[in-house]
Design a protein around this nucleic acid. Sequence first.
DNA 1: CATGAATGAGGGTTCATTCAT
DNA 2: TATGAATGAACCCTCATTCAT
Lengths: 180, 180, 180, 180
Amino acid sequence: MPRVVDHEEQRAAILDGCFDLFARKGYGSVTMRGAARELGVSTGTLYHYFDSKEELFRRMFERNARRDIVEAEGILTEGDDLRMRLLKLEEYLEQRADHLQAVLMVAVDYLRNHPEPTARAFLAETAALYREALGERLGLPGQILGASTFSFVLGMILHRTLDPAAPAFSDQLAVLAALA
Amino acid sequence: MPRVVDHEEQRAAILDGCFDLFARKGYGSVTMRGAARELGVSTGTLYHYFDSKEELFRRMFERNARRDIVEAEGILTEGDDLRMRLLKLEEYLEQRADHLQAVLMVAVDYLRNHPEPTARAFLAETAALYREALGERLGLPGQILGASTFSFVLGMILHRTLDPAAPAFSDQLAVLAALA
Amino acid sequence: MPRVVDHEEQRAAILDGCFDLFARKGYGSVTMRGAARELGVSTGTLYHYFDSKEELFRRMFERNARRDIVEAEGILTEGDDLRMRLLKLEEYLEQRADHLQAVLMVAVDYLRNHPEPTARAFLAETAALYREALGERLGLPGQILGASTFSFVLGMILHRTLDPAAPAFSDQLAVLAALA
Amino acid sequence: MPRVVDHEEQRAAILDGCFDLFARKGYGSVTMRGAARELGVSTGTLYHYFDSKEELFRRMFERNARRDIVEAEGILTEGDDLRMRLLKLEEYLEQRADHLQAVLMVAVDYLRNHPEPTARAFLAETAALYREALGERLGLPGQILGASTFSFVLGMILHRTLDPAAPAFSDQLAVLAALA
DNA sequence: CATGAATGAGGGTTCATTCAT
DNA sequence: TATGAATGAACCCTCATTCAT
């Protein structure tokens, strides 16, 4: 037997250690050497577990998305009325604002570095995961309503990223709640 | 001082020729050599007019923003009622969807390549230009309402970028119009 | 000592499985990991049986040479007259052209990757095996005649490798036969 | 104007400086960094003049072939009878043995590193240059005779490369002359 | 005996920028 | 003013070999 290491566990450990790095610096600015150094392994080891930088990124990104969704589902408990659920959403967004900004940034960044259709498809799938979770948890009837709300959330996050002086999520969501 | 005129004309010509390049390939994938070749000048000339790739980008980006806004103002004519103005917005967005997606992408892309505060500040300013133009033209009372609508527009564009299967702008704006 | 038997069998199995790999991809392009995978063993096992990639190659190469010679001797039966034997040679060469090209390629390839005198000496020895077998089987009197014929055969193989449009072995050998 | 350098002259200077390196170490063992160092330029400069290692090699190889042929033609003067011309060939081969061995080695080496059909085609073309020059200069009637002689010459060179103890060119050519 | 995880120097190549002309 | 040759650090990735298990 080789060094007593559970292959899948190691992969997971690397992925977990990677998210921050990608989130902080962006896809294009993460170097495999840098990642290896940060993780305390060699570049060879990184390539032992992942075929390429892109594969490393994709697995990390998907893993993160699933975790985000689980976490969101823990907060956006069903059953309450819509106003209540919007408040929960606000709480979640505010709590995880930095993280979500990072996710968005890194997604766009990845897209720019990989213009191939497969990369687009990968991101579309992952975006759908988030969108569906949001629509479901918010109990919004109809696809379009869910997608529009997702657009709004996406936009608020991006808006704040581009301009930190953008209004708080709570204020913007209040507009939505008032209309609803 | 005819020299100066030529000088400024050259600068402008370079900037105009640059937007497509940045939009198509992204900030990180534009090389100064490539840009020079595409523009039919030498790298030396590029550096004669602009101190760095970043300066080239900034001037190009700002110039584009001003043009976008002028164009939008031509379409989002004031005077009509809100529903009418939302229809005009829809028309503008649909017409310029690709361009606006590119602008968004390139902005985020630039941010990732330049994490310094000055870069953030530059983008925040430019974002404000767009936001204010939108609020004004739509005749939305109150900053927050304007900012929220801007978030929504931003989100729709980004949503479509991440997932081309996202609902059409018209459908999403219809949700907004129905609420209003 | 059944252990020893197994051991030697394993070595032989590895060597036999290796030739194709080296022939197909060339010395420089065979990786120990790739070889291990193809053979269905681990890199560790490879290194257990052979000290280095070079040793693996040498043993494989020599083993192959011996087999080639045995095979050639089966075809180039003595006793016939020279013209007859040249026809047999032609038959053998045509039959095994691809294999012989591969042997030649891999030999040169190995030489380039190991410029040390010991590597040259190893190849010189192996070349002598082929040359002597050829001279003997063809019944050529004198070393120089044998060596010259060997040069010619070598040249035909290399010629065809460099330029697949080179004349067929039969046509070239006909020139030789006509002179003889 | 940029640094006063004739582009084509520089290219030629690099190519000339490269041959020895490739000949000495083989295609696979020449690194662009190493080549740059040896030539006293930076890797960037190498890539300024040649798109890739392969292009550098090809141009160098073809240039060398043309020079070889010009040189051979200077020695293998026409007009003499065949025996005389074979003596001249012997003189040329002996004089340039090391060089020709190197050419052969590097050609095979290149083939192993670039298995693509275009690489084969390139080598086939270059081989044809040598073959035709030889046939013409030796005044050999018929394609097959020329090609066979080329095979023989190729074989002698390779033979000597594989086994330095192989008979001298003169002795082997004497066999040919005796037959003719 | 056998495994395969781990290493890290080194591979080809890119690119923002400088500067002699 | 304009040119483009030159730089060299840094990029992603490979691979022979080692060694803990």
